[in-house]
Design a protein around this nucleic acid. Structure first.
Lengths: 338, 338
DNA sequence: ATGAAAGCGCTAACAT
DNA sequence: ATGTTAGCGCTTTCAT
């Protein structure tokens, strides 16, 4: 059985209130002598506070919920890690939940987290969500949204990434390296993210007064196979491109493969760049230059916003003025390593 | 403010005890009438139980801790997912913790989880751990070990994978496909896992009465670059191999690349197989045949052992007879898709 | 500077 | 079939 403050109080011959205050550093006016005595006994007896009992009265748990589609999807581990790092820094714990983009599971998790009295929820859902259920709308717990914006009450913060700007940066980088005819291989276009990336590509070309022809754009899916196939198509069609920008790293990896098979040298003949969605490139193809999604930073920032809000640093804000952090400018380009 | 059983009791004109029993399905002898009345009120008032209060008296939290080195390491998301799936099935939540193989952080998490009164901890640490600290040894919470065995008190279960057997299976598979001169490209040999895999390779050859020459074995690191380099070495040395087995999927991917560059066809000329450590192969190189680590199953099984033990299905066991699940036989070979 | 006492919301004997 | 009661371990006024 664990030692309780009651036992410590008895051994130290003080009241439980005194012990409690000392253990919580609320010992402004408690004599050195008693403090030391109590602290020593607590240590000796290996006292471990019962956070259930504490939470019951303080109404907070130092626990936050992290709801995301699937930790196995390589997009999420970094977010989860960033959030956990920031949380543990302030001694918060994270309960993590996988929804598989299933509304019912999502609701169920919101319920469970509410019952567990989490101090807040970090919501990171990747799928397009048409509606939300009553349950989610009723949620009393402060919410931070990651990666996708969504209209929900009780959202006290958002962490989004500016895909348009990132894509633009990537293309500008290619431009700065002297490439002029940049082809774009997109993944599936059914997300806002995908559209933003294409948008950024176009913008970058326009701003450099380069023509942006539809011939240089191919739309498919976020797979290396597609990157490879699309590249071969470009080659077959005789499009005079000198660089390829892939909608994500998988596509870029596929493109590199096809290029090499065709006897083309990267980056001497053709420049290749990818949007590093899932940090795969650095492991499999260290020679690929990528623009890195700040997933870790997003998770970190989300936890930070949440904790600040919980601990009152954001109290004065208007109810519907959710603090927003757009991390687009923090995107970094990782150059090839060899 | 949340509704409490007290308020429901008042509105239903019964005692809190009655409400509690009904809400917990301990209503063996409670009239239909009251039950329905209470249930209805609870629903109407949107009652959400306060698990803090409940846990304070029941001494369990329906929460389990998951301690692992780093969720960003592609080895762990599947484990985490498996554990979460099994846990949520029984309405358990998971608090997840990243230690970076740091003993101090590990200890700190054990403390925090203890304070949070988790019902058990799933421990999955990848690094070689020389000693354990007092803190960990003192841990009162039941522990399940994943992937690496380790001597610790309070371990009530282990989920390990039989790498030797798996490696053997992989080589046998290659043998069954008609390959006879199988080269092995190992990663770093400083883990038991690596040694077991090499061992399995040798065993398989021996059992088929094939010579196992040192010339066919190269030791390096778990990177695609090494797989590629080693393959080129084999080629340069003129070793007459007809298949390559990679210590992990990254190595195998590298090998395939080098082979293709050399104009060799996979699998017609040369068979290639990899140990699918990190489920990367299926995304980047769908044509690679792998032997799949049952990471998901390991996580699932670990949570299952833990929950069974918590809920008493394993009570009768001897103290030091930790339930062990060796998942080697459940390893599966995933054939190339095209 | 310290103690007494009243809960936080719930469960679990034990009564009735 | 339902109520009474005594906590679980802790924090927090309010006294002293």
């Amino acid at each position: 059985m664990q030692v309780t403050i009651k036992e410590i109080a008895k051994e130290a011959e003080v009241s439980t209130a005194t012990v409690s205050m000392i253990l919580n550093n609320k010992d402004k006016n408690i004599s050195e002598a008693t403090r030391n005595r109590v602290l020593e006994i607590a240590k000796k007896r290996n006292y471990i506070p019962n956070t259930m009992a504490r939470s019951l009265v303080t109404r907070h748990t130092r626990t936050i919920g992290l709801i995301m589609p699937d930790i196995v999807n390589p997009f999420f581990p970094e977010i989860a890690r960033g959030a956990e790092d920031r949380a543990s820094k302030s001694r918060y714990s994270i309960i993590y939940c996988n929804t598989d983009d299933n509304l019912i599971r999502e609701d169920s998790y919101v319920d469970i987290l509410t019952e567990k009295m989490v101090d807040g929820i970090i919501f990171t859902h990747s799928a397009d969500r048409k509606g939300s259920t009553e349950r989610l709308k009723r949620c009393q717990v402060p919410i931070i949204l990651i990666d996708r914006d969504y209209d929900l009450p009780n959202v006290i913060g958002k962490v989004l990434v500016d895909n348009t700007k990132a894509s633009q940066m990537a293309v500008n980088y290619l431009l700065s390296k002297g490439y002029r005819k940049i082809a774009y291989i997109a993944g599936s276009m059914n997300t806002q993210t995908a559209q933003d990336r294409l948008e950024g590509y176009k913008k970058a070309l326009e701003e450099s007064n380069l023509e942006c022809s539809q011939r240089y754009i191919k739309i498919g899916e976020y797979k290396s196979q597609w990157g490879s196939d699309a590249t071969k198509e470009f080659l077959r069609e005789g499009i005079p491109f000198d660089a390829i920008f892939g909608g994500n790293d998988l596509i870029a990896i596929g493109a590199m493969k096809a290029l090499k098979e065709a006897g083309l040298k990267v980056p001497d003949d053709i420049g290749v760049m990818g949007f590093d969605d899932i940090y795969m490139s650095s492991i499999v193809e260290p020679s690929l230059t990528t623009i890195k999604q700040p997933n870790y930073e997003m998770g970190y920032k989300a936890a930070e916003l949440l904790i600040n809000s919980i601990e009152g640093h954001g109290e004065q804000r208007e109810a519907h003025d959710a603090e927003k952090a757009i991390l687009g400018t923090e995107l970094t380009i990782r150059e090839s390593t060899r």
